[in-house]
Computed example of a mutant assay.
Amino acid sequence: MNALNWFEIPANDLQRAIGFYQSVLGLSFTPDTCFDDVEIAVFPHSETGVGGALVKAAHLQPNAQGTIAYLGTSELDAVLARVPTAGGAVLKPKTFLHEDIGHIAVIRDSEGNTVGLHMPMQ
């Protein structure tokens, strides 16, 4: 069992955030509205994998501090190259950690959140 089973990344402008992550990671999202008019856009995931969403809600505000979620990618260099043109910034470039772990990088998304990227060894 994984310690993490769901994550939420706050967004002030959900459509802008969707555009950022679609452009940078090449993902498709499932938009939805859940309780109390909270707007979400769900990241693709399997039923047994970790899920998450971009969330626009009054009780959540994007920020650069706090917990960092690391999103997986098999193309870290290409992803990092797309971050600035999508409205974000690379805060920590591609960094090798260990042969069992792979590479990481840290970005600021279009909403001002700090988000990690992880590319396992292949």
Rank of each mutant, 00 (worst) to 15 (best):
A89K: 14
K92S: 11
F43T: 09
A53I: 04
I101P: 00
T73E: 04
T95K: 08
T30H: 13
L97W: 02
V79S: 04
L91G: 07
T73H: 07
A89Y: 00
A89D: 06
T73R: 07
H103W: 12
A57W: 00
P62N: 01
P62M: 03
L91S: 04
A89V: 09
Q61V: 10
I68H: 05
K94S: 10
L54W: 10
L71D: 02
T85N: 07
S74A: 15
I101V: 15
G51W: 00
A86V: 02
P62D: 11
T67Y: 09
A89F: 04
G87C: 10
P84W: 09
H103A: 05
T48Q: 15
N63T: 12
L80S: 07
I101R: 04
A58V: 08
V83A: 09
V50C: 12
I107S: 08
A81N: 06
G66Y: 13
L97E: 09
A53G: 05
G102C: 06
V83H: 03
V90H: 10
A57I: 02
T85L: 07
L91E: 13
P62R: 11
K92F: 06
I40N: 01
G72Q: 14
V42G: 00
E47P: 14
F43L: 06
T48I: 11
I104L: 15
E39K: 15
A64I: 09
G72I: 11
H103R: 12
Q65N: 13
V79R: 01
G49P: 10
A86H: 05
A69Y: 02
F35V: 13
T30I: 13
T73W: 03
P31C: 13
G88E: 09
S46D: 10
K56P: 06
L80Q: 07
